[in-house]
C-alpha cells in the first residue's frame, strides 16, 4: 500500500476512521479498568471477617452478610439441580429424537423468546405462579424455580451445540453393535458432550449470581441464617438483592461496595474458569 499515493480526502477518511476505532477501544478499556479498580478498592477496604461471618443484628447495629452468602449458594445449587435435567433433556430431544421440523422450530423459537424476556417479568410471573398460585410464599425455592425458567435456554443451547458436534460415526458405531437409541445416548453421546453441559453450567452460574430483579419478589429480602432445606422454604436475600437493599434503602454504601467487590471477584473467577474449561475441552477434542 502506498500511503503517499492517496488523495487528501482518502487520507483524512483513513485518519478519521482509525481515530474513531482507537477512541472507542480506549473508552471500552478505560470503562472496564475503572469499574474493576473502583469497585475492588472501595469494596476491599470494607471487607472484614466480621462482615463475612456474622448475621445482621439491629441491637448491636452490626451488619453481616453470611446469610446472604449462604442464600446465594443455596439458590445456585437448587437452580442448577433442577435446570440441568430439564435443559439437557430438551437438548437431547431436539438433536437426537425430534423428526418433525415444525416441532423443533417451535421449541427453538420458544427458547429464543425465553432468553429475551426481561428478568423483572420473570420475577412478576414467578411471584404470581410459584409464590401465590402454588402457595410457596416468598421463598428461596420460588426464586430458584423462577431462575430455572430463565436459565433453561442457556443450558439447552450449549448442550445442543456440543451434541451436534459429536461425530455421527460414534452413534452409527454404537448402533452397529446392537445398542438401542437410549443406550447409545446414555453411554456414547452424552459422555462426549460433557463440555457443552459444563459450559452451560458456568454461564448459568454467572447469570444466577448476578440476578436481582427476578428475585426481589420471589425470594425476598430476609437475612436469617438457615440450613439448606429450611433455607429453601423461607425468604432470603441473595448477595445482589442484599447489595440493592443496603445501597438503596439503607444507605449503607460501605457494605454495598464490599458485596460489589465480592461479586466482581466471583465474576472474574467464573469468566476465567469458563475460558480455561473451554481451552481444556478444545485440546481434548483435538486429540
Amino acid at each position: 500500500m502506498k500511503k503517499n499515493g492517496m488523495s487528501a480526502r482518502r487520507r483524512a477518511y483513513e485518519i478519521l476512521m482509525r481515530g474513531a476505532m482507537y477512541l472507542a477501544m480506549g473508552i471500552t478499556c478505560a470503562l472496564v479498568l475503572f469499574l474493576i479498580f473502583y469497585v475492588l478498592i472501595k469494596g476491599g477496604a470494607n471487607i472484614t471477617w466480621e462482615l463475612l461471618s456474622t448475621t445482621p443484628s439491629y441491637l448491636s447495629g452490626r451488619i453481616g452478610i453470611l446469610p446472604d452468602i449462604l442464600n446465594t449458594l443455596y439458590i445456585i445449587a437448587a437452580t442448577l439441580v433442577i435446570v440441568l435435567p430439564l435443559g439437557v433433556g430438551a437438548a437431547i430431544y431436539l438433536t437426537e429424537y425430534a423428526e418433525n421440523k415444525k416441532v423443533v422450530g417451535i421449541i427453538e423459537y420458544a427458547a429464543e423468546t425465553l432468553s429475551g424476556i426481561p428478568s423483572i417479568i420473570y420475577g412478576l410471573v414467578g411471584m404470581l405462579f410459584f409464590c401465590q398460585f402454588w402457595g410457596m410464599k416468598t421463598s428461596l425455592l420460588a426464586g430458584a424455580l423462577t431462575l430455572v425458567i430463565m436459565n433453561l435456554p442457556t443450558i439447552m443451547r450449549t448442550t445442543q451445540e456440543s451434541l451436534k458436534s459429536v461425530p455421527q460415526s460414534y452413534r452409527e458405531g454404537a448402533f452397529g453393535l446392537g445398542a438401542g437409541k437410549w443406550r447409545v445416548i446414555r453411554t456414547v453421546v452424552l459422555p462426549s458432550s460433557v463440555d457443552g453441559i459444563i459450559t452451560g453450567c458456568i454461564l448459568s452460574l454467572g447469570r444466577i449470581l448476578g440476578e436481582s430483579a427476578a428475585l426481589l419478589f420471589t425470594a425476598g429480602f430476609a437475612h436469617a441464617l438457615n440450613g439448606f432445606f429450611d433455607g429453601l422454604t423461607s425468604a432470603g436475600a441473595t448477595l445482589t438483592v442484599a447489595l440493592y437493599v443496603y445501597a438503596k434503602e439503607q444507605g449503607e454504601f460501605g457494605v454495598a461496595f464490599a458485596i460489589a467487590a465480592i461479586l466482581m471477584v466471583l465474576t472474574l473467577l467464573i469468566n476465567l474458569t469458563a475460558t480455561l474449561v473451554g481451552r481444556y475441552f478444545k485440546k481434548r477434542r483435538d486429540i
Partner: peptide
C-alpha cells in the same frame, strides 16, 4: 480486550447501579 468485554457482560446490574449512584 475480549476478556475485558466478557467481564463487562458478567458484572451484575446492581453493581452498575451502585457505581452509577
Amino acid at each position: 480486550v475480549g476478556a475485558a468485554v466478557s467481564l463487562l457482560a458478567g458484572i451484575p446490574s446492581v453493581v452498575y447501579g451502585l457505581v452509577g449512584m
